[in-house]
Nucleic acid binder design. Structure first.
Lengths: 226, 226
DNA sequence: GGGCGCCGTAGGGATTCCGTAAAGATCGGG
DNA sequence: CCCGATCTTTACGGAATCCCTACGGCGCCC
């Protein structure tokens, strides 16, 4: 059954959404605040998130970013603010759709169906275990094989995150440079050599013979769990 | 470069869209009617479609259905009609987003970025099973008959990719050389002999009697699954 | 039968690419 | 202002890959 997480502080709207979604046989989870919503998403990853931007405890785009740190789940934003700027900020933070209150329940359900239709079956899990080490994408923490915390610098983390989120897939050098350094550094491949070396020394049991952070000469790098 | 197809009959709006999209470095194609739009999409598949529902020659949902018959390209619908029913129909026909006129150009571009972002995350995993081996083009991964990972060099990948994309069809030597080595090497057919040999040795159960990577003497090569 | 064109295989040298270490450069905090 | 952490840049040995040549096999036509 399809699981939908609703993060909404208005009790009336929350109840209305719950009734309508359950009537269509969705499995619904509810959160009243951003913090609990994020915790619930990590505890039990949903197939789609309906998020109210006007929550009291957290900024809306921060919630989106926190989700996007580890998940590609479709995010449908509800908001009372109809300005263009708010929509652009939310969409660029990673939201998939933006619905301005007041909205019709029929339209909401149609946009929800559209979001679910193109659901991807990727690695939507907050923690990825890789033989010798463990990556917690949601908390941005890493543990060594001995349970020791490993400290990564910002760039090291960004490189690792791109690779882990594309587990098994070859990530080209251009793609990595684009994601981490931006479009002006697409040819600076020696950066990658340096930072892949750092990551291997910190994470691999035998940095000279990596088992998880692999090089594909002339093409790019690949992360595999085992 | 990202290719966007705009299907819009209003000349003013079409021009405005063209200017804004090209300014953001999108490659823009334009159609004034549904029929030509569908033809252009088939001739040169875009990365995203912007579709006006109020075209004179065809019903909007029919255009969406026709596209969805063969493509999962993101479709962003523009419409002057703001009723819930129209939106629901379009979204359930397969559209990804629905924008009511008049709309802000900033919001349109943000929704366009949201649609394109999903494409990069890659729904399509073209996995081709070929008797003795399995090719995953998106992940750049190959498994042998025994489930063993097979490593290919960049040029080996390029050659194989061209052949697999043209599964069943004869690919001429000129075409292969053009795609992989570029226009300056159209007569260096011995390169092909060398690299086809590499591929067969790595992928075929009996490299001397290939069953999937076939030679058509004097013409070119052909990939077949079985 | 022999020449010829086409294909497959092998291997060596040149070139490109990668890993590693380490020295400046830059930035932020105390 | 100094110091530590981080990022950038350079240099070099070694590995992977590519280009190119050589040689043998096969089928075809004269």
């Amino acid at each position: 059954m399809t699981a939908v997480l609703v993060i909404e502080d208005d009790a009336d709207l929350r109840r209305a959404l719950g009734i309508n979604l359950r009537a269509r046989d969705y499995k619904v989870a509810m959160a009243e605040s951003g913090a609990t919503g994020l915790a619930m998403a990590e505890a039990s990853p949903p197939d789609l998130v309906i998020l109210d931007l006007g929550l009291p405890d957290m900024d809306g785009t921060d919630i989106i970013s926190a989700l996007r740190a580890w998940s590609r789940v479709p995010i449908l934003v509800l908001s009372a603010r109809s300005g263009q700027g708010d929509k652009i900020d939310a969409l660029d933070a990673g939201a998939d759709d933006y619905l301005t209150k007041p909205f019709g329940m029929g339209e909401l359900l149609a946009r929800l169906r559209a979001g679910l239709r193109r659901r991807v079956d990727g690695i939507d899990q907050p923690v990825v275990q890789a033989g010798s080490f463990t990556v917690n994408l949601a908390a941005r923490r890493i543990q060594d094989g001995d349970g020791q915390e490993v400290h990564l610098t910002p760039i090291e983390w960004q490189v690792l995150e791109v690779l882990v989120r594309n587990e098994g897939r070859l990530v080209s050098q251009r793609e990595l440079l684009q994601e981490v350094w931006g479009p002006g550094y697409l040819t600076e491949t020696h950066y990658l050599r340096v930072y892949m070396g750092h990551l291997r020394r910190k994470l691999e049991a035998d940095p000279a013979n990596p088992r998880h952070l692999l090089t594909e000469p002339g093409m790019g790098y690949r992360f595999i769990r085992d």
